[in-house]
Write a protein that binds this DNA or RNA. Sequence first.
DNA 1: TATTGTGAAGCCTTTCACAGCA
DNA 2: TGCTGTGAAAGGCTTCACAATA
Lengths: 213, 213
Amino acid sequence: MAKYSKIPEATVRRLSNYLKCLDELESKNEKVVSSATLAAMCNVNPAQVRKDFAYFGEFGVRGMGYRIKDLKNHIKDILGINREWRIAVVGIGNLGSAILVYKDFLKQNYKIVAAFDIDPVGVTGRISERLGKPVEILHVDSLKEVVKQRNIEIGIITVPPQEAQKVADLLVEAEVKGILNLSPVPVRAPEHVKIRNLFFTSALDSLVYYLSK
Amino acid sequence: MAKYSKIPEATVRRLSNYLKCLDELESKNEKVVSSATLAAMCNVNPAQVRKDFAYFGEFGVRGMGYRIKDLKNHIKDILGINREWRIAVVGIGNLGSAILVYKDFLKQNYKIVAAFDIDPVGVTGRISERLGKPVEILHVDSLKEVVKQRNIEIGIITVPPQEAQKVADLLVEAEVKGILNLSPVPVRAPEHVKIRNLFFTSALDSLVYYLSK
DNA sequence: TATTGTGAAGCCTTTCACAGCA
DNA sequence: TGCTGTGAAAGGCTTCACAATA
């Protein structure tokens, strides 16, 4: 099987999920896992798991399963998260400051290296106090400059909806490669900048659809 | 076309997205939208849009498009969000308190009617101050009782990862129908309780995969 | 005329079933 | 023996292309 060839979008989503389950197994000191076990943990079919892994070569051990440590590394290689990714958060309100200190980012190679707000002075004190340490919040006006200085490749948008598209435009201008939008309106960008809109209400909507039956 | 028959999962996801775009159009005073326009906004194929809407009958107007107001109502009916859904948030840290005041929930029929923490006394003052109004935070020990008293059907988990599964178990015991898990480890529940795990890092992972090419 | 609604084709994804191998 | 890797079958979803019609 060709290594690192085109991988279906659905597989990409699952790979990220497998990682979370592998972390869980690792924390229980498991060294090896079978496709059946992992499949049960992730609610997918065992053959699906094997097919997903087959996209990056043969390295399971027949009769035994997959070595968790190796598997994690392979998946991270595929996803491109074996290196550090430098991130800016724009909009340091309640959600933004939660993201700023979100522990799971630190465990991954996701580094938040800049935080922007339209009112950095007003926000700085409040946030520093909440976090119990001084935090540097910069004015949005300096975004373009700072993004370039600090080699930031990804922007996370946590501003109010009416500002979201403006901030997206700013980030595009600053030449980030990708945007994760957590504000509740879709934002758009030119082809060369990848966008992920993540709506909390959409997660609830699809949950509710299945509850309603 | 049979009304409200089985709808593909992918369609359900898109319906929720169309809603967000329809809100946007409505805020610009548009009354009617064509499948082509909506498709462009949502990055899908126009035929896809029409097929998605065809699941709940024929009600577009040929030569003209879909009436936005009607369309929104139809979609909400399908998803089951035309009625109020009562929600509890468990874990009032940074993320939990951001969710507590997340404005987009208020605009939908999602009502957060209880907030729980393991340290309600410590948290209450801090949060009330941040929100500028008194907020009632309850001890997790009272969860089961309060969930029943207040007819809560959905729980949102925003506790640290090591507590997430315990809280999920509590919610199941309290007989919620669905759980939205925002903590960074997958949680599990019996078949009859629907789970949505929403990981911020997974959104970044899939973004990064496409950035890495 | 413009745009919907939809059968049919095409494509992609999942699952099955079993050969292959440690 | 137990579990992976995978061709083939089945299933599901998306897109095309055009008839239908306001």
